[in-house]
């Protein structure tokens, strides 16, 4: 039980690290790309097409990192479910009562 709790903790910690790490790198990428775009957007004639490219770039980057976060959450939930399943039989194992002596089962195997 304690081991499963720790495995779940490790899973959650890795999930948190991926979630926050992806968000931090996304922010850096968007801010870094913003600088050349801002410069190019000040050039007459280029401003409009550059703005469009800038918006497309930001949407693509945001979606890519959102996909990373979604997969991370899905994998996390799947692992939690698997760990719960591993833990389940240990928690709910019924105590076996002594059974009455009974006739041995006859085998349906015609070769015996």
């Amino acid at each position: 039980m304690k081991d499963v709790k720790r495995w779940k903790g490790l899973r959650a910690l890795i999930g948190d690290a991926v979630e926050h790490g992806a968000s931090a790198i996304e922010r850096v990428q968007l801010e870094t790309a913003k600088r050349p775009f801002t410069l190019l957007e000040q050039i007459p004639g280029l401003a409009e097409p550059v703005k469009s490219v800038h918006q497309i770039h930001d949407v693509v980057v945001t979606n890519a990192y959102e996909a990373v976060r979604l997969v991370n959450r899905a994998v996390g939930q799947a692992l939690d479910a698997a760990l719960d399943a591993v833990d389940e039989p240990v928690k709910e194992q019924p105590v076996a009562e002594p059974s009455e002596p009974h006739e041995p089962e006859t085998s349906g195997d015609p070769n015996r």
Binding site: K5, R6, G9, A12, L13, D16
Partner: peptide, 14 residues
């Protein structure tokens, strides 16, 4: 290193 985060999120490693 990150025990405050572990405790705050109810992490089993705390």
């Amino acid at each position: 290193l990150v025990g405050d985060h572990l405790a705050r999120t109810g992490n089993g490693l705390a």
